[in-house]
């Protein structure tokens, strides 16, 4: 009886997938990303190398990649045990109404994506800084996954859900959620957990 319970529980397990689109592991420490996701969201993680071809979403006029199109591809190929999926891509992303995006996510949906392009110091003509890149990546992952858990942008400057129009904004916001965003995240996460 006990065994059956755990077996059932295991079958019902859902994961936050980290989807690596391109040579991401050469640039960032994915182990640290996993550790952060477990701490902030409390779900187990799985890493997956993507088979998505980003060239399908390339816009030659802008020399950028349309992130919504990549999200659509991610959604079409979502593993059955994926509770959420966060993509990491080294390419520069955009959505039509914004000049660029650090990331994009479905509000209350399953998928989100973060671009490393503008998180790297090299983009701004500065020497590389690995720990800074890692910190920025974790902030943007928390931000985009926050959207998938139903959180909107927050006016508390220190909250990770505050908007970043520039890299300076990314650096000035905190890595975690403010009290009210955390409360909403926990409520939505609990509802989700009960629904599994």
């Amino acid at each position: 009886m006990v065994l059956n319970y755990f077996q059932r529980k295991k079958e019902r397990s859902k994961y936050i997938y980290i989807l690596l689109i391109g040579d991401v592991e050469k640039l960032v420490n994915i182990g640290e990303v996993e550790k952060n996701l477990k701490k902030e969201f409390g779900f187990p993680t799985k890493i997956l190398n993507s088979e998505i071809n980003p060239e399908d979403s390339y816009d030659p006029m802008r020399n950028q990649y349309h992130s919504t199109k990549i999200l659509k591809e991610m959604l079409d190929n979502l593993p059955s045990d994926a509770l959420r999926m966060i993509g990491i891509i080294p390419l520069d992303l955009f959505i039509p109404i914004l000049t660029f995006v650090f990331g994009e996510a479905q509000l209350g949906g399953k998928v989100g994506i973060v671009s490393l392009a503008r998180l790297r110091q090299e983009f701004y003509g500065l020497p590389p800084n690995q720990s800074l890149l890692q910190r920025r990546l974790i902030k943007e992952i928390n931000h985009e996954l926050g959207h998938t858990f139903g959180l909107v942008h927050c006016s508390v400057r220190e909250c990770v859900m505050s908007v970043a129009n520039s890299i300076a904004d990314v650096d000035s916001k905190g890595v975690s959620f403010c009290n009210s965003c955390r409360e909403l995240l926990n409520r939505n996460r609990k509802e989700l957990f009960n629904a599994i």
């Binding site: 992130s67 919504t68 999200l71 659509k72 959604l75 955009f94 959505i95 039509p96 109404i97 914004l98 000049t99 660029f100 995006v101 650090f102 990331g103 994009e104 996510a105 479905q106 509000l107 209350g108 949906g109 998928v111 503008r118 943007e140 931000h143 985009e144 959207h147 909107v152 942008h153 908007v163 970043a164 129009n165």
Partner: peptide
């Protein structure tokens, strides 16, 4: 601005982006 994102639903529903400034020329994207 958030409401704008809600209204500009994509084929995968409402999405929210972090970054950049709004494109100055709406007619090109809308």
């Amino acid at each position: 601005v958030d409401r704008l994102h809600y209204i500009l639903q994509t084929e995968i529903g409402v999405t929210m982006g972090d970054g950049g400034n709004l494109s100055r020329n709406l007619q090109e994207v809308m």
